[in-house]
């Protein structure tokens, strides 16, 4: 395999006396979906915030496209091509899909020297991109509030891709969704991966991870418990690793393997 797009080496992050990350290494290749699994408090959020420039690592190295990187703030990361799609904080329900899609990146057309929002261009591109992702909009001026949770995630992903993301970080995109919406989002992830973008997929649902993941890294208590490639590991093993290997095994027995 070639060089990874982004390589996070031995990342440590301390908040005062709390060690949130104690040496985590993850690398992401173009066109792969790298799943980051972990239970609540495992350090997933801290890790992706470090990756997207919100936190500075206390120790460790971030190498992006072969060069060491030092993000001052999230805008640097976005400019470099690292886009994060947050579970909730992505879309504004009262605004139209096209206004949301271009939020912060509004296309400009000049009329008599004045700079205006190019609605025609924005509407056209929004409709095209939505069609690619398989969302049938009533119109580009439809409010995001009328979309389902899965569709909103998809719009957010399409937006990140359209604006040149090379690494796409998805923060628990499926955790609040129903079955059908989840499969839609997973299908979107698959499309994005095939377009050659490195996807970091954060979840604590092993089945969702197994559905699209190429490689799996499990975090527990701020440490990596190793990275496995698809086919090398069973869902049960992943589940055990996430839970730290103990009680869940017995609990799962009594629940009939439904967790």
């Amino acid at each position: 395999m070639s060089e990874p797009i982004i390589r996070m080496k031995d990342i440590e992050k301390h908040f005062g006396s709390v060690i949130a990350l104690a040496g985590v290494s993850v690398d992401v290749f173009a066109g792969e979906c790298h799943c980051l699994l972990g239970d609540n408090g495992a350090g997933k959020s801290t890790f992706i915030k470090t990756m997207s420039g919100v936190h500075k690592p206390t120790k460790g190295e971030i190498i992006f496209e072969g060069k060491p990187l030092d993000f001052a703030d999230p805008r640097d990361a976005i400019a470099a091509g690292i886009a994060t799609v947050h579970q909730h904080l992505a879309m504004i329900p009262l605004m139209s899909v096209s206004r949301n899609f271009f939020m912060g990146n509004e296309p400009i057309k000049k009329v008599a020297g004045l700079r205006f929002f190019d609605h025609d261009y924005a509407n056209r591109v929004t409709m095209e991109e939505m069609k690619k992702m398989g969302i049938n909009l009533r119109g580009p001026d439809q409010a995001v509030g009328t979309l389902s949770g899965g569709e909103r995630q998809t719009v957010a992903i399409a937006r990140a891709v359209h604006f040149g993301a090379k690494v796409l970080i998805l923060d628990e995109p499926t955790s609040a969704l129903g079955v059908r919406q989840t499969s839609n989002v997973l299908a979107t992830v698959d499309k994005v991966r095939k377009a050659g973008i490195g996807v970091v997929f954060i979840t604590h649902n092993v089945r969702h991870a197994m559905a699209v993941g190429d490689r799996f890294t499990v975090l527990n208590r701020g440490q990596t418990l190793g990275t496995a490639t698809r086919g090398e590991i069973t869902p049960e093993e992943l589940q055990d690793m996430m839970a730290g290997g103990q009680e869940l095994a017995t609990l799962e027995g009594s629940l009939g393997g439904t967790v």
Binding site: P74, R75, L89, M91, I92, P93, L94, R99, G104
Partner: peptide
């Protein structure tokens, strides 16, 4: 619109 709709989401989008 974005600032009033959801300030955090707007900030996330720059």
């Amino acid at each position: 619109f974005a600032s009033g709709g959801d300030a955090d989401a707007a900030r996330n989008s720059g």
